[in-house]
Amino acid sequence: MSIASQRRWQLSLLLGPASLFLLVFFLIPLGIMVVTSFLAPGLYGGVEWSFYPHNFGRILGFADPAFEEFDPVYIAIFLRSLKIAALTVVATLLVCYPAAFHISRLPDRWKNFCLFLITLPFFSSLIVRLFVWVMILRPTGLVNETLLSAGVIARPLEMIYTDGAIILGMVYVFIPFMFMPVYASIEKLDWRLVQASLDLGAGPVRSFLRIILPLTAPGILAGSVIVFIPALGNFVVPAILGGAKVMMLGNLIEAQFLSARNWPFGSALAMMVMAVMLVLLVAYVIVSGRRNLAASAA
């Protein structure tokens, strides 16, 4: 056996299981979803096998005239989801960046302990942890009871089932996802470069903006993508903390599949979410690719 064909064998052995898994559990379902999104919904659930572009039309403005009029509510839900996901990114970044900075400068023993604490939430169920937030935020919950008995407020504050509650829950869920890439880039930062900047006359603020921020930007960028994409499609947090009042993309899609039994429309919505994510990912690859290219051009 020649070396080249031996290498090809090794490669297919190494990549085989992963490729097979992705093919069966990702690519094929994705194909089914793409096809479904262009089929007409059946009257009692299921699909009718005819080409039907109005699933996308319902979202974008060319609804099937036989059925209904165009309602911009779906675009509004899209925009709200984008807004909440963006705010989640900003809030997790504001929490994680200073914390990662501080932890990266601790002695090794404390550093490892803090990293353990960050991963600790993964040891218990997400649903349980979110219901704890319900206990804390609801009208008869911890915060309201405390404030009421202290006489700070006369009526319970409306905290749960608001956009604020969703963002709070999202931040809570996604902090570890932001923290890890941000921490990795800050940990890697060469402090001697900061010293050099101070030595050359730049004060702390300028040294941060000109040296620390650009050198940790890859971590910020990676963390933002890792948080934004699942936050956009998340349905657990709005389902538990948003109640029935706040609809987000995740809930909308879930409702189409499980309650409305309109699979084609649900597929079309999911396709739209994927399109947004794809645009973002491509932008990320181009931006980070340009950075790498600039950094390694020979």
């Binding site: 060469d190 001697r192 470069l193 010293q195 050099a196 900047s197 101070l198 030595d199 050359l200 006359g201 730049a202 004060g203 702390p204 040294s207 040296i211 650009p214 050198l215 950094a295």
Partner: peptide
């Protein structure tokens, strides 16, 4: 005085050039 307000500059052992 902090380092950024002293009229001295340093050539560092590892050069500490800004990589970006």
């Amino acid at each position: 005085r902090p380092p950024y307000r002293r009229p001295v500059n340093t050539v560092f052992q590892n050069y500490a050039l800004f990589p970006h």
